[in-house]
C-alpha cells in the first residue's frame, strides 16, 4: 500500500493505482474526457492535470501512478488556470448551440465549462473549418464540430467491440473521427452504439424523433430482452415512453451492448401492440374485455377438465422466471399435466 496526500487529505491506496483513481476514492472528481477504465490510455485531453509537489510541470493524473509520500493538488491556481484555458480552447471551436443539442444536461463539456467558468464569448480564436456530419448509420450520427477528439469512440470500437470501424482522419486541427471510407457499412460498423455510449459531448448522438431534455427523463436499470447474454441496460423514459437505451457498466456486459439491445426498442411503444384481449367470434378475432376472455378460457378448461392429456402449454424463453414458474405451476396444478415445453430448442 502507498500513502499519499491529495488536496491535504491523506489516503492509502494499492500500488500501481493512478492518482486519478486515488482522488476518486477520496470523492475528488478530477475532470477528464478521454479516460475510461476499460480503454487504453490516450492521455490526450489533458484535463486531468494535477500539480505534484516537487515537479514544475503539470502532470496528467490518469496515467500518473501514486508514489509514497506524493503530495498532489488537484485544484491549485495553476491547475484551474490551465483547465480554464484548455476548456476555452475547445469552446472556441465548438458550436454554441447547447439550447438545441440533444446532449445538453449530460454533456461533460457543458459541465466542466460551468465548473471552470468558461466564458460564453470565446476568448480564443482557432482556425477551424466545419466538417459535415456523417449520418450514414441508421441509428446515430457523427457531428465532428462537436467532437473534442477524446478518441473514446475509436478505442471502444477497436479495443472493446473488436470491430475498429472508427478512426481518426486527417491531422492537427483538421483531425476528425469517421468511419473507414466515411461509410458505416464499408467500415464494418455493427451499429452497437458503444461509441455513442462513451461520447462525452454531442458529437455522437442517436438519431431520434423524440424530443426530450436529459433532465426530464427517468432511467430504469433492467436486463436486455434479446439474447441470452443478459446485458444490463438502462431504459430512458420520457412521458411514459422509452426514448433511449443506455448501457450500464455494472453488468457482465461492462457497458457494451449490441444493435438490438441499444436500438431495437421501438416495439415497446409500438402502435401494433395488442392493447386489449381478442376473442374469436364467428370466425373473427374481435376486441373483448378481460372478463370475457377469461370466461371463454374457463369454459374450455371446464370442457376438457377431465382429460388432462388434452392440455398442452408452450411456455416462453422470453418471459420472466416468475412467469415461467407460474405457467408450469398452472399446468401441473390446475390442468394436472406435465405437457409443458418451450422454445429452448429453437
Amino acid at each position: 500500500m502507498i500513502k499519499l496526500i491529495i488536496n491535504g487529505n491523506q489516503i492509502e491506496v494499492e500500488e500501481n493505482t493512478t492518482v486519478l483513481k486515488a482522488a476518486r476514492e477520496l470523492g475528488i472528481e478530477i475532470p477528464t474526457f478521454c479516460d475510461d477504465d476499460r480503454l487504453s490510455k490516450q492521455t490526450s485531453c489533458r484535463l486531468c492535470i494535477v500539480e505534484v509537489e516537487g515537479t514544475d510541470k503539470l502532470l496528467t493524473s490518469c496515467n500518473l501512478e501514486v508514489k509514497e509520500g506524493m503530495v498532489v493538488n488537484t485544484e491549485s491556481e495553476k491547475v484551474r488556470i490551465a483547465l480554464k484555458i484548455n476548456l476555452s480552447l475547445i469552446w472556441a471551436g465548438h458550436p454554441n448551440d447547447c439550447m438545441k443539442c440533444g446532449k445538453s444536461g449530460e454533456c461533460k463539456l457543458q459541465d466542466y465549462s460551468f465548473e471552470y467558468d468558461v466564458d460564453a464569448e470565446p476568448i480564443y480564436s482557432v482556425r477551424k473549418e466545419a466538417i459535415a456530419k456523417n449520418a450514414t448509420n441508421h441509428f446515430f450520427e457523427i457531428d465532428p464540430d462537436k467532437c473534442i477528439l477524446c478518441g473514446k469512440c475509436v478505442r471502444i470500437c477497436s479495443e472493446q467491440v473488436g470491430v475498429g470501424a472508427l478512426g481518426f482522419k486527417n491531422r492537427g486541427q483538421e483531425t476528425y473521427v469517421s468511419f473507414g471510407n466515411d461509410n458505416f457499412e464499408d467500415a464494418g460498423c455493427v451499429s452497437c452504439g458503444s461509441c455513442v455510449s462513451v461520447c462525452p459531448t454531442g458529437a455522437l448522438l442517436n438519431k431520434t424523433a423524440d424530443k426530450y431534455r436529459n433532465w426530464d427523463v427517468d432511467k430504469v436499470r433492467t436486463t436486455c430482452s434479446y439474447c441470452g447474454v443478459g446485458c444490463q441496460m438502462e431504459l430512458v423514459v420520457h412521458k411514459g415512453k422509452i426514448v433511449r437505451v443506455d448501457a450500464n457498466e455494472e453488468g457482465s456486459n461492462r457497458g457494451l451492448l449490441c444493435v438490438k439491445g441499444k436500438y431495437a426498442f421501438n416495439f415497446i411503444n409500438h402502435r401494433d401492440r395488442l392493447t386489449t384481449p381478442l376473442v374469436r367470434k364467428n370466425g373473427k378475432l374481435v376486441e373483448a374485455t378481460w372478463e370475457e376472455a377469461y370466461a371463454k378460457i374457463n369454459q374450455k378448461y371446464l370442457e376438457f377438465k377431465g382429460e388432462s392429456n388434452s392440455f398442452v402449454g408452450f411456455s416462453s424463453a422470453r418471459c420472466t422466471n416468475e412467469e415461467n414458474y407460474l405457467f408450469q405451476k398452472m399446468f401441473r396444478q390446475v390442468f394436472k399435466t406435465n405437457n409443458i415445453d418451450h422454445c429452448a430448442r429453437l
Binding site: T43, S44, R46, L89, I90, A92, Y124, R171, G172
Partner: peptide, 15 residues
C-alpha cells in the same frame, strides 16, 4: 505539424 492528438497543442498553437 501538430498531430492533433492533445488539446493544448492542437487548439492552443492555433490560438
Amino acid at each position: 505539424e501538430s498531430c492533433g492528438k492533445c488539446t493544448p497543442c492542437r487548439e492552443g498553437t492555433a490560438a
